[in-house]
Design a protein around this nucleic acid. Structure first.
Lengths: 200, 200
DNA sequence: AATATACGAACGAACGTTCGTTCTTTCAGG
DNA sequence: CCTGAAAGAACGAACGTTCGTTCGTATATT
């Protein structure tokens, strides 16, 4: 929805969500005050309550607006149809690129975990996992050269691979020696596909 | 240090740290008040300030007391000297067992990341990484059958493997289909060692 | 004219910290 | 072993601020 199609109220609401998102990921939920949200969104304190009934409802709206799953699924879907090496590498780098557009998405997740007791994450995962499972299953059957490892495990290790890869870059940055290596993602995918043990 | 060797003040201080740890991992840092800490530690509000100059100093003490690195390093050290399969599996399951004794350590990390901007984690990592690097390097040289992948990458992927493995169990529990698989850790280690692609 | 939106003062509650005071522990000097 | 003074520890009221939310009123939009 473009800016012109929105009423004034919708634009204000959207601005509040955007501002709250930035403040939440910088300071946490309880570390952010409604006054900060109001000031940074260019609205008065009381005016916020014309658009949201409570602070927690703002957090819910932020969570809804900023989770990247809608962008992730097509990436996995579009990555199929080539060799397994290309598939995995494209999927991994595509997902990391998608997360790069939501640079502080992990913070949002951590707030969810710590300050709200992970109420929503399992729901999101169980909703999306079957879809991912279906995509990978169809690809695996067509490709046919996987070792006999349960598919959910493979998916779990893959998600873990790219997730921890991103997390390491995100949290530690260049302060972690392993982050300075050239082609780190390529190597990581290589390990996922072929392992670290030499077969010669 | 046992309870008998401690003065009254040391015992109180230790109790405050213990209580604060529990409340922080349940509610976050800003979500926990000094009054809650005082009440749950069985001390008065003002009394706390005989042992800590500020709330943040309590968090520092909690972080120091509850990070599991002191236990992790010996585990990696003691896991060496056998085959690479045994080494990796022992190290992985040992580290997961160590984290199990600090069941909410991840929450503490997440608070650090969100509410304190990851001020301390890089410091901790750069302190311990060279030691881990040294241990693994000596083992790799002795073993000698690793594929030509940079060692920091291997370590990074391994840490990511076990870290995300634990995180998946911890956050999602049985609600994540892949967690219900038998021998999930064994399979994960297998992928790390040999990859998912069949070599036949 | 009717409705939606914005305002900012005001509310009571809760926040982290300080304060003066009292009670308890510690450990010399006898 | 006592004794008594110094130090340590605990208390809870109170401080000034900030919190999330409400409200009556004014302004803008439709």
């Amino acid at each position: 929805m473009t800016d012109e199609n929105m009423t004034k109220g919708e634009r204000t609401r959207s601005g509040i969500i955007q501002t709250a998102h930035r403040l939440f990921i910088e300071q946490g939920y309880h570390g952010t005050s409604m006054r900060q949200v109001a000031a940074n969104a260019g609205i008065s304190l009381g005016g916020i309550y014309n658009h949201f009934v409570s602070k927690e409802e703002i957090f819910m709206a932020v969570l809804e607006a900023y989770h990247p799953y809608h962008e992730m699924l097509p990436i996995i879907k579009n990555a199929q149809g080539e060799s397994i090496e290309a598939f995995v590498h494209n999927a991994a780098s595509g997902m990391i690129a998608a997360l790069d557009k939501r640079p502080d998405f992990l913070n949002l997740m951590f707030i969810e975990i710590v300050e709200f007791g992970s109420r929503h994450i399992p729901k999101i995962f169980t909703k999306y996992f079957p879809q991912v499972m279906g995509i990978v299953q169809r690809f695996a059957e067509k490709q046919g050269n996987l070792r006999p490892i349960p598919l959910p495990i493979i998916i779990r290790v893959f998600i873990g691979l790219f997730f921890s890869y991103y997390m390491t870059e995100y949290i530690l940055g260049e302060q972690f020696p392993a982050n300075l290596q050239q082609g780190a993602l390529q190597h990581s995918v290589d390990i996922f596909l072929n392992g670290v043990v030499s077969k010669e």
